[in-house]
Design a binder for these strands. Structure first.
Length: 947
RNA sequence: GCCGAAAUGGUGGAAUGGUAGACACGAGGGACUUAAAAUCCCUUGGCCAUAACGGCUGUGCGGGUUCGAGUCCCGCUUUCGGUACCA
C-alpha cells in the first residue's frame, strides 16, 4: 500500500471539521495558552510559500502545547481594510468589499489545504461591522480620555474639565500638545467651540494640526513614498507641505510606559532595541535664552548642557512660530523667501538632499552663561516637531552645527582639551572640559566647568540651570503622535459628526456606524475625501440614525466625518476580539479576558516593529487603564519569522537569436539572461517543452544543451511575480502533500532566519514520510509494528528523540527536530521490528509537524480519538544510559583515538589507562606529561610540553 | 552616519568552550530492472598519500584568552535588515 497523501489529507481535514476538533472553549480546569499569528491582508495575489512559514511554526507550537494538556487558543482572521482593494476599486468601479471577500475565500482555501489547527469559529475580519464596532468604540474611549502624568494612566476627560472649571490649568498634570496656561475664569468664560478646541490639547484621540504632503490637484494627502521630486507620482502634480486638521492619537503620552514595558516581555533583543530607538528617550536640559534688545525669550532643548560656553549661534526650525516673532523688519524679505523655498521641498527631499541652507533673522540671543550675543538663524536642519523647535548651536561639538558654521563662516569654539576641530567637530562625550569659561574673559556668572569630565559637566550644568531658574531638566521622546485619519474610502468610518464645527460622538448605543455606499471611490471635485460622494451621510440627532445629506439643516441633522481610519486601527486590538468574537455588548467579556489574558506566543514579521507593534501596545495600554484588558503588555513572547526569498532561474538567450544556451556553456556566447518561471524548472533543469509552451515567442526556440539537459542559472531575489520565482503552496501540496510542505518549510532552517525558497530539497522530506509509511505498513497495508515489548535499543532511540524534539520545539529549533525524526526512523528501520508503543510515541511526536499522516497512523494503531488529544510522551533519562562510555583521547587538544570505559570509571583510573595505552606512547614521545583533563562522557586531553 | 543580525562544503544548514560539516539536497559510483521511474547500498570540505593504514589543512581577516575556540575577548572586512539632520 502506497503512501497516498492526497486521500489521507482530505480525509482528516474533513474529519477535523466534522468533529470540530479545533474548536476551543474557555475551561477553568485547564491552563490556557494563546498562540497568535499576525493576521494577513488578503491580497489578490494569494499566498506564496513564504506566508505559511510563521503559521506552520505557530501551528506546531499550538499542537505541541495541546498535547501537553494546555487549552490552546489559535485563531485566524483577516486585516481586510487597505489600499490595494481600494486602488482596484478606483480602476474597475468594483466595490472593495467584493474583491476583499473573494480574496478572503481564496486565502481560506489555501490555508485549509495546509492543515492548520485554527479555530475558525473565532475568525475576525476588520471590515466586518460587528468587528469595527469595537474599533469605533475604542476611538471614542480615547476621545473621552486624557493622560494623567501623575497617575500614569488614562482618565475620563470629565475629570479634566472639572479641574479646569475649578482651578484652570493650575496643578494640572496632563499630557498635552502644548503647555497651556489658563485660569478657571478664562476657561469658564470660553464658549462651546473654544472649550472643544482647547480640550483637543489633552484628549488621547484628538483633532490636531499636523504637517502633511498635500496635493491640491488630487485633493488628498499623500504618503512620503507617493511623492518624488516635489510632485505626485500619480499625475505629476505639485505637492506642498501643509498643516491640516487631522485626527491623531496621543501615543507620545505613553512613551515612558511603552519603554518600560519592553523590559517585561520576551521579545528578541534587536526588536526591543528597534522600539527603544523609535521611542527615543533622551534626557536633557531646557534652557531659556533672552532676545537682545527685547523682552522676548525662547527655550531650547539640549542633551549637551556642558557645551553652554561653546554656543556661537542659535537656529530655529522654519516651521517654528518663533521665526515670525524674532525676524527683524530689515531681514523679513529674506526670511520669507527662505521659508517659501523650504515649503516647496518635501520632507523626503530634505532627507535625501542635505545641502546647507539657512538665513539670519536679524535677532540675537543672549547666552545666559557667557552673556554673549549669538545671532539667531533659521535653517531646515532643525526640526519643528522635536524638542522646542529651536537649538543652541555648538559647532565645535556637533557635526551638524559644524557644517552650518563652516558654510556661513560662523565662529567655532572648542571646549574639550586636545580636541582638534579644524577639520571636523568632536562629537564624542569623552574628555576634559576647557574654555568654560574661556581664560581671560571676564566671568559673566560665577560658574566654571573647566577640568571636569563631560559627564560631570552635564550634571553640574543641569544643577546650575535648575537652581538659578534658567530652565529645567527635561526628558524628550522622539516618538510622535500618530496621525489617525486618511482621505480614503476603504476603512473604518469615524463615529463622529460636526455640529457647528464642533465634533460630536455618535452615541455608543448607535454603533457601529456603517461605512456608507458610494458610487465613486476617488475624492470629490471639491477635494473632499471619497466619503463626500456618499449621499446618505448625515446624522439625525433626534432619530439617532444616519440620513440623507439633503436633510442637513444644522439644527438637528449634521454632517458626518468624511475621513476614515488608517490601517493600524483595525489591527490594534484584534487579539482581544478573538477571545470573545461574537460578543454583542463588549469588545471582550471580562470573563473571557480574565481567562485568556494576553497572547503568550505571537508570530510575525519584523516589518511591524515600529508600526503595529507600537500602536497595538499603546492601544492595549489605554484599554488596560480602564480595565478592559487585564494585562498591560498584550504580547508576552514574540517570534519573528524570517522572510522567504525567491530563487529565480535564468535562461540564456544568445543575442539577436532565438537560441538558448545551457548555463555552463553560456560564457562562450554573448547572451542575455532572462527570468524563467521556476515552475517549469526542476533542480535547475529546464523542461524544454514546457518552456516552448510558456510564451508564444519561445515556441520555435532552439537550445544548446549540456549532457542532453538545459541547465538554468539562478539567483536569490525577492519573491515576486515579475521575477517568475513565486512558488505557490497549493502546487507543493498538490505534488507532495501538506505534511511534506509543513515538514520542509521547517527543515529549511531556523524560523527566525531569512532564507531562499528552494524546492530542490523537498524530496528528502517527502522521502522521509514515504519511508515512515513503509516502516509502519507492509505491502498489504497491515501494521507491521506490533511487537508487544520494546527492546532496549528501541527505547533508547525513541527517548533520544523525545528529548530532542521536546527541547527543540520549546526553542523553536524545528529544523533540527526534523533531522532528529529522520535519524530516529533510520535507527528504527535498522532494528527491523518495532513495538507498538515506540511507534505510538513516534507518531505523537510527529503529530504537530505532520498532523495528517500522524492521524492516519494513530487510527491504524487502534485509537478512536484523534491524535490531537493524545499525550506528549515523557522523556526518561534511564533509557539513555550507556553500558560503557567512549572517550576521545586527545593530546594537546588534538583528538587521536578512542577508548572505552565502564560508566563509573573515575578520573584517576581513566588517566592511568590512557597513559598506559600503547597508542599513547607514539604521541608522547619527546614530550613531558603536564596534566590530564577529563571532560565527563566526552574527552580526555593529555597536556604535554616539550621535554 | 547610527542601531541590530550574520559570515561554516557545490547548496540549505548542524555543532551546552570538547572528534567541525549532523540531517537533507545535489553530484559521482554501484545493485535491482528489457528500460525508465521508484527503492536500496557506497563515496562526497580541500590537499597529499595508499595494496592498506594514514597525514596535513580547514568555520570571512588579524590578534588574544584557554590544556582545547566556529563558539569567549579586542581590532578589522563584507553582506543583509532597520533608521535617519531627534540637538
Amino acid at each position: 500500500m502506497e503512501y497516498n497523501f492526497k486521500e489521507i489529507e482530505k480525509k482528516w481535514q474533513q474529519r477535523w471539521v466534522e468533529q470540530k476538533t479545533y474548536h476551543v472553549v474557555e475551561d477553568e480546569n485547564k491552563q490556557k495558552f494563546y498562540v497568535l499569528n499576525m493576521f494577513p491582508y488578503p491580497s489578490g495575489a494569494g499566498l506564496h510559500v513564504g506566508h505559511p512559514l510563521g503559521y506552520i511554526a505557530s501551528d506546531i507550537y499550538a499542537r505541541y502545547k495541546r498535547l501537553q494538556g494546555f487549552n490552546v487558543l489559535n485563531p485566524m482572521g483577516y486585516d481586510a481594510y487597505g489600499l490595494p482593494a481600494e486602488q482596484y476599486a478606483i480602476q474597475t468601479g468594483q466595490h472593495p468589499e467584493i474583491t476583499t471577500f473573494q480574496n478572503i475565500d481564496h486565502y481560506r482555501e489555501q490555508l485549509d489545504k495546509i492543515g492548520f489547527c485554527f479555530d475558525w469559529d473565532r475568525e475576525v475580519r476588520t471590515c466586518d461591522p460587528d468587528y469595527y464596532h469595537w474599533t469605533q468604540w475604542a476611538f471614542q474611549l480615547m476621545y473621552e480620555s486624557y493622560y494623567d502624568n501623575d497617575l500614569r494612566k488614562a482618565q475620563p476627560i470629565g475629570q479634566l474639565i472639572k479641574h479646569l472649571e475649578e482651578k484652570g490649568t493650575e496643578g494640572l498634570s496632563a499630557a498635552g500638545t502644548e503647555e497651556l496656561k489658563l485660569t478657571a475664569e478664562e476657561w469658564n468664560a470660553m464658549d462651546e467651540k473654544q472649550k472643544s478646541d482647547t480640550l483637543m490639547n489633552w484628549r488621547i484621540a484628538f483633532l490636531g494640526e499636523t504637517m502633511v504632503n498635500w496635493c491640491p490637484e488630487l485633493g488628498t494627502v499623500l504618503a512620503n513614498d507617493e511623492v518624488v521630486d516635489g510632485v505626485s507620482v500619480r499625475g505629476g502634480f505639485p505637492v506642498v507641505q501643509k498643516k491640516m486638521r487631522q485626527w491623531c492619537l496621543r501615543v507620545s503620552a505613553y512613551s515612558q510606559r511603552l519603554l518600560d514595558g519592553l523590559d517585561t516581555i520576551q521579545w528578541t533583543g534587536s526588536l526591543r532595541e528597534t522600539q527603544r530607538n523609535w521611542i527615543g528617550r533622551s534626557e536633557g536640559t531646557e534652557v531659556e535664552f533672552n532676545v537682545a534688545d527685547s523682552d522676548k525669550h525662547f527655550t531650547i532643548f539640549t542633551t549637551r548642557a556642558d557645551t553652554m560656553f561653546g554656543v556661537t549661534f542659535m537656529v530655529l526650525a522654519p516651521e517654528s512660530e518663533l521665526v515670525a516673532e524674532l525676524t527683524t523688519a530689515d531681514h523679513k524679505a529674506e526670511v520669507d523667501a527662505y521659508l517659501e523655498q523650504v515649503k516647496k521641498r518635501t520632507e523626503r527631499e530634505r532627507m535625501i538632499d542635505k545641502k546647507v541652507t539657512g538665513v539670519f533673522t536679524g535677532s540675537y540671543a543672549i547666552n545666559p552663561f557667557t552673556g554673549e550675543k549669538n545671532p539667531i538663524w533659521v535653517s531646515d536642519y532643525v526640526l519643528a516637531g522635536y524638542g522646542t523647535g529651536a537649538i543652541m548651536a555648538v559647532p565645535a561639538h556637533d557635526s551638524r552645527d559644524y557644517t552650518f558654521a563652516k558654510h556661513f563662516g560662523l565662529p567655532i569654539i572648542p571646549l574639550i582639551e586636545g580636541a582638534d576641530v579644524s577639520e571636523e567637530s568632536y562629537d564624542a562625550k569623552e574628555g576634559i572640559v576647557m574654555n568654560s569659561p574661556r581664560p581671560g574673559v571676564t566671568p559673566y556668572i560665577d560658574f566654571s566647568l573647566n577640568g571636569m569630565t563631560i559627564k560631570e559637566a552635564i550634571a553640574a550644568t543641569k544643577e546650575y540651570v535648575e537652581s538659578h531658574k534658567l530652565g529645567r531638566v527635561k526628558v524628550n521622546y522622539r516618538l510622535r503622535d500618530a496621525i489617525f485619519s486618511r482621505q480614503r474610502y476603504w476603512g473604518e468610518p469615524f463615529p463622529v459628526y460636526y455640529k457647528n464645527g464642533i465634533p460630536q460622538m455618535i452615541p455608543s448605543e448607535c454603533l457601529p456606524l456603517l461605512l456608507p455606499e458610494v458610487d465613486k471611490f476617488l475624492p470629490t471635485e471639491t477635494g473632499e475625501p471619497p466619503l463626500g460622494n456618499a449621499t446618505k451621510w448625515a446624522w439625525d440627532e433626534q432619530k439617532k440614525q444616519v440620513v440623507e445629506n439633503s436633510k442637513i439643516d444644522n439644527k438637528t441633522v449634521f454632517p458626518i466625518e468624511l475621513y476614515t481610519m488608517p490601517g493600524f486601527a483595525g489591527s490594534s486590538a484584534y487579539y482581544l476580539r478573538y477571545m470573545d468574537p461574537h460578543n454583542k455588548t463588549a469588545l471582550v467579556s471580562e470573563k473571557a479576558d480574565a481567562y485568556w489574558k494576553c497572547v503568550d506566543l505571537y508570530v510575525g514579521g519584523t516589518e511591524h516593529a515600529t508600526g503595529h507593534l507600537i500602536y497595538s501596545r499603546f492601544w492595549n495600554k489605554v484599554l488596560h487603564d480602564y480595565g478592559y484588558s487585564c494585562v498591560e503588555e498584550p504580547f508576552q513572547k514574540l517570534i519573528n519569522q524570517g522572510m522567504i526569498q525567491g530563487r529565480s532561474n535564468f535562461v540564456y538567450r544568445i543575442k539577436d537569436t532565438n537560441t538558448f544556451v545551457s548555463y555552463n556553456l553560456s560564457k562562450e556566447y554573448d547572451v542575455t539572461p532572462i527570468h524563467v518561471d521556476v515552475n517549469i524548472v526542476q533542480n535547475d533543469v529546464l523542461y524544454v517543452e514546457a518552456f516552448k509552451a510558456w510564451r508564444p515567442e519561445y515556441a520555435t526556440a532552439e537550445f544548446i544543451l549540456e549532457d542532453g539537459k538545459y541547465i538554468c542559472g539562478w539567483a536569490i531575489e525577492k519573491m515576486s511575480k515579475s521575477m517568475f520565482n513565486v512558488v505557490n503552496p497549493d502546487m507543493i501540496v498538490e505534488r507532495f502533500g501538506a505534511d511534506t510542505l509543513r515538514l520542509y518549510e521547517m527543515f529549511l532552517g531556523p524560523v527566525e532566519a531569512s532564507k531562499p525558497w528552494d524546492t530542490n530539497g523537498i524530496d528528502g522530506c517527502h522521502r522521509f514520510l514515504k519511508k515512515l509509511w513503509m516502516f509502519a505498513f507492509d505491502k498489504e497495508g497491515n501494521l507491521r509494528c506490533n511487537n508487544p515489548e520494546s527492546t532496549k535499543e528501541e527505547l533508547k532511540s525513541i527517548h533520544k528523540l523525545i528529548k530532542k524534539v521536546t527541547l527543540d520545539v520549546e526553542n523553536f529549533s524545528y529544523n533540527t527536530s526534523v533531522s532528529a525524526f529522520m535519524i530516529c526512523l533510520n535507527e528504527l528501520n535498522q532494528m527491523k521490528s518495532t513495538s507498538k508503543e515506540v511507534l505510538e510515541q513516534f507518531v505523537v511526536l510527529l503529530a504537530p509537524f505532520c498532523p495528517h499522516i500522524a492521524e492516519e497512523l494513530w487510527e491504524a494503531l487502534g485509537h478512536n480519538t484523534t491524535v490531537c488529544d493524545a499525550q506528549w510522551p515523557v522523556f526518561n533519562e534511564e533509557y539513555l544510559k550507556e553500558d560503557a562510555i567512549n572517550l576521545t583521547i586527545s593530546f594537546n587538544g588534538k583528538a587521536r583515538f578512542q577508548m572505552s570505559f565502564p560508566v563509573d570509571a573515575d578520573n584517576a583510573t581513566i588517566e592511568k589507562a590512557v597513559l598506559e595505552n600503547p597508542q599513547s606512547a607514539k604521541y608522547m614521545e619527546g614530550f613531558q606529561h603536564v596534566k590530564t583533563i577529563v571532560v565527563p562522557k566526552k574527552i580526555v586531553n593529555i597536556v604535554l610540553k616539550k621535554a
